[in-house]
Design a protein around this nucleic acid. Structure first.
Lengths: 127, 127
DNA sequence: CGGAATCCAGTGGGATACTG
DNA sequence: CAGTATCCCACTGGATTCCG
């Protein structure tokens, strides 16, 4: 699912839902987190995403490119080919939102912990 | 999908993804927007969500309640039964995030418009 | 290395009808 | 009024294989 068709999931054309559509993919948020610290190669990304297959990574990267959140550069001068992904200007403008959502999520989890078995251990995405 | 199981979609337990799971349902973001302005009854909500069926509304409300974003109060003293939904404290703490996401979405759409046919007209969710 | 193609399963969500 | 119960379909995402 990409946001580029400019159509929200419910009927109304709504900026909030547009933002959600951009981030809704299973690996998209974490990919953006990885790219916040600088460009990454396809395989580099893959190795930092345990459980993500090449197919899924390629799919999510494509959709993020369609939405103009990331861009890729291909270096044909080396063999084998080297491709790199990085955030666009738009993508970088998303960082503050992502950080705000992460901060709220942390507070939320903390607020719920006392009522649960408290067995889960947090390992942040290192934003 | 609810966030209450405290398990993110990709492997890592990540606050950002927890936040996304809470908002990811098709009608959840817009329901939260509706409740930002005060409590609403089931049918009131339904009528402001064109295209949403009673089943879907009930499902999304249940998940939001499980995540403790909203709560419902039932008035058994009137006939027929009157139920009302409102944001919890946690839910109200989400408002600033929702507004930030909506604001970013507006900027994003504006940034993309020049490159598209510019036929779509924005009708905001009136946050 | 960095993908694309194919196939398949799980689930999110719609249509419809029934209920306390 | 405020929901459930069934049925069904489309789409997301996983596994595997093939390619330049």
């Amino acid at each position: 699912m990409t946001a580029f068709d400019m159509q929200t999931r419910h009927g109304e054309v709504c900026p909030l839902d547009t933002t959600l559509k951009i981030l809704a993919g299973k690996w998209k948020s974490i990919i953006i987190c990885r790219l916040m610290h600088g460009e990454q190669r396809f395989t580099e990304l893959l190795h930092t995403l345990p459980g993500c297959t090449r197919r899924m990574l390629a799919l999510q990267l494509q959709e993020l490119m369609t939405d103009q959140i990331i861009k890729k550069t291909v270096d044909l001068n080396v063999i084998p080919i080297k491709t790199s992904y990085q955030l666009t200007e738009l993508g970088m403008s998303l960082i503050s939102i992502v950080q705000a959502m992460d901060a709220w999520g942390t507070t939320y989890i903390a607020a719920l912990q006392p009522k649960k078995s408290a067995t889960s251990q947090l390992t942040d995405e290192r934003i």
